[in-house]
């Protein structure tokens, strides 16, 4: 059950993050003061991809809540970093991000860390 919940969380997070990043790149740099965050909330309701991203994040969140009841937080939270490698590859393919050697190395180290955490 723990691995099923983790799988649901990872897949939902990957889709949610890619959709969010795609939309946020299109919308331009956002302000992080109260007015800026409110404007961001309004944007969510007006953009289909952001709505889909929030649905994915909600699925991920409920899987995370169920996971927290079954596994220690010090496992559940770091294990979700399994998304990093997958998202790095998909960001390069679909978001056309420049991924240099350092970013690849960083992503691989993060993934290696996750493998250790899973033990």
């Amino acid at each position: 059950m723990i691995w099923l919940l983790l799988g649901i969380m990872v897949i939902a997070t990957v889709f949610g993050d890619l959709l969010q990043s795609h939309e946020m790149k299109r919308s331009g740099a956002q302000s992080v003061n109260a007015r800026g965050l409110l404007a961001l909330l309004k944007q969510i309701g007006n953009r289909l991809y952001l709505i889909l991203a929030i649905v994915c994040m909600a699925i991920s969140f409920f899987a995370f809540m169920a996971l927290l009841q079954r596994a220690p937080m010090s496992f559940a939270v770091p294990a979700s970093a399994a998304t990093v490698i997958l998202e790095t590859i998909l960001a390069k393919l679909f978001l056309h991000e420049r991924v240099g050697k350092r970013r690849w190395a960083g992503a691989v180290l993060v993934a290696a860390g996750v493998v250790l955490l899973a033990h």
Partner: peptide, 9 residues
Amino acid sequence: ALMSWADLT
């Protein structure tokens, strides 16, 4: 907001 400032990667 951070994603609007920086790459996902």
